[in-house]
Design a protein around this nucleic acid. Structure first.
Length: 370
DNA sequence: CAAACGTGGCC
DNA sequence: TGGCCAAGTTT
């Protein structure tokens, strides 16, 4: 009996995306980098970042030794920046603990920051020709449809079952098969309106047999996406330089350079709700609150010049509504009595700022208002 | 184990 | 336009 794997391999041989940049190599560094970049990120988004990153940092040693700011600048715009920080930590661990070679067992590979079960399997299969199964979103969807799995796709029991299926179904040539099932999921067994009329697995697909192709995988609970509101401070000095602060490694935009996020409420809450923000934006209090914030937080004496319109940036788990406060540095002197530890920012020319790792909305702001 | 973590494309 | 989804891992 012809196995599903054989059909996928034959389909891939004829229809697969053999020209993707990371399909031209068996180098573990290049394979690993592609896997990390492709986590939760679409192929077309990754392509330009992948080439640029490899040109700048072509191997483990270069990545391990690079300044974190360079790594984040190369990642800027890709999102999920913990991936970039973890990638550098992984490179440092490989150089320090694994003699500069990607480790060749699942346990050791998964000890690398940012490398989980699926990523480890993908690299081991392709770099070392090991028989390792992956379970990414594509493989998951294909298995759920072909096996007509009607349980919650996120439930741990379902995932255990899917991993078992993936392992059973993965042939000796896992390197080719893993790519085959991913391309199949990306081109035929797509999330919505799968192309069942062109599907070589049609005769063996339980979802198709049961008329469930459009219903599976079962939808998962959509969490509430709250609105958050705030201000970005766009401070300029006399020579037109911009003030940015480096965000802490944990949390949103970790490690990136960012316009200071101004919290006029003075509380520990990072954002105001919208009506509060409107009231403040229209009120005369804003000017004084900004001056106070800059003096206390950064030791800067500033004057507010303007306020931009409301803009929006959407994250996975919330939406950020913000305005920019345009202000100028009034006095180049640091305010007296300011402790060093609160001087958390640096001044950048616009050009130098845009060369750093910036969150996408900050990059847009600084690109627009030249 | 649920929540956190970015961004862009699609319909 | 707004919700859905994408080559997941970490805490």
């Amino acid at each position: 009996m012809i196995q599903i794997a054989d059909i996928l391999l034959a389909w891939y041989d004829k229809n697969g995306r053999h020209d993707l940049p990371w399909r031209q190599t068996r180098d573990s560094y290049r394979l690993w980098l592609a896997e990390i970049m492709l986590q939760q990120t679409q192929v077309e988004s990754v392509k330009p970042y992948y080439q640029r990153f490899l040109n700048a940092l072509p191997n483990w040693e270069a990545l391990a030794a690079a300044p974190q700011d360079q790594v984040l600048a190369l990642w800027s715009g890709l999102g999920y920046y913990a991936r970039a920080r973890n990638a550098q930590r992984a490179a440092q661990k490989i150089v320090a603990d694994f003699a500069g070679e990607f480790p060749n067992t699942p346990e050791s590979a998964e000890s690398l920051p940012g490398v989980g079960r699926s990523t480890a399997a993908a690299v081991l299969a392709s770099a070392f020709a090991q028989q390792r199964a992956i379970l990414d979103a594509n493989a998951r969807r294909v298995l759920i449809r072909t096996q007509a799995i009607r349980s919650d796709p996120k439930a741990s029991k379902t995932l255990q079952h899917l991993w078992k299926l993936a392992e059973v179904q993965t042939p000796a040539d896992a390197h080719t098969y893993n790519q085959a099932i991913q391309d199949f999921g990306a081109m035929i067994c797509v999330p919505r309106h799968p192309h069942c009329d062109a599907c070589p697995l049609q005769r063996r697909c339980l979802a198709y047999a049961g008329g469930l192709s459009e219903q599976l995988p079962l939808p998962t609970r959509k969490p509430e996406k709250p609105d958050r509101c705030g201000f970005f401070l766009q401070l300029e000095d006399r020579s037109g330089r911009i003030f940015l602060e480096k965000r802490p490694d944990s949390g949103v935009w970790g490690g990136l350079w960012c316009l200071p996020q101004f919290n006029p409420a003075g509380s520990s809450l990072p954002f105001l709700c919208d009506d509060q923000q409107k009231a403040l934006a229209d009120g005369f209090l804003l000017r004084e609150r900004v001056r106070q914030f800059c003096a206390l937080r950064h030791g800067l004496v500033v004057e507010v010049k303007a306020l931009t319109r409301l803009q929006k940036h959407v994250f996975t788990h919330f939406q950020l509504h913000f305005r920019c406060i345009l202000a100028t540095l009034q006095d180049d002197q640091i305010a007296p009595g300011v402790a060093d530890q609160i001087l958390t920012g640096r001044w950048f020319t616009r050009e130098n700022a845009l060369a750093e790792g910036l969150p996408t909305p900050v990059r847009k702001i600084l690109s627009q208002t030249s």
